[in-house]
Amino acid sequence: MSLLSVRGLKVAYGGIEAVRGIDLDVEAGELVALIGANGAGKTTTLKALAGMLRPAAGTVRYADSDITGVASHRLIRQGVALVPEGRGVFARLTVQENLQMGAYIRDDRPAIAQDLDKVFGLFPRLHERRAQVAGTLSGGEQQMLAIGRAMMSRPKLLLLDEPSMGLAPLMVQKIFEVVHSIAAQGVTILLVEQNALLALEAASRGYVMESGAITLSDSAPALLASPQVRQAYLGE
């Protein structure tokens, strides 16, 4: 049984269907990439999975229970965390307060303090800037903060939306190193990316999304080798 299993998911904005009935599975411990062009419906899919949007149809099962249409503030308590597109850090809260927001659902203070140290260990830059308001951070630092904040909830399933967006190559590399190390800790990850090469190199499996539908799904190496993917997403 998959940790996350999506069947026939449809999401619409007003009358316009952005996601048109997709199936998707993520096994526990896997890192799965969902790639596709801008506007393919990737972010909409993640938002629906995280409870930010109500699906128009279909079912979402997570850890053996039906979570279709469950609101995000409940899902996080079951271990589903989303790092939203554009990071969504609280610009007027300090770095440390942002991280504490990530642990909002938890009450185990000593363990929260431990996890805070862990995040600071992972991102020493955040430690340096812990008293600064998050709005003053660079884009890369904000992305670190958003990921660190999501980790503070101790998620079982981490949904990452475009972590590389708008970042310098060095920073992208750093972020992906962190994604690897999070995956190595046993956190299941569904990664949405426009940077198909990076995403497929990190993932074990991948889905390709086009205009609201999944058009390809295979192991990451197979997708990387597929002429269709190479032509459309790797610029060959």
Binding site: A50, G51, M52, A71, S72, H73, I76, R77, A81, L82, P84, G88, F90, A91, R92, L93, E97, Q100, M101, G102, Y104, I105, R149, S153
Partner: peptide, 22 residues
Amino acid sequence: KLGVAMRATSENPQVAGLMGID
């Protein structure tokens, strides 16, 4: 905690929801 939740909600209600804030 309520105060932090209020500040977070005032800044970005959607992301506040992602943090588990009702």
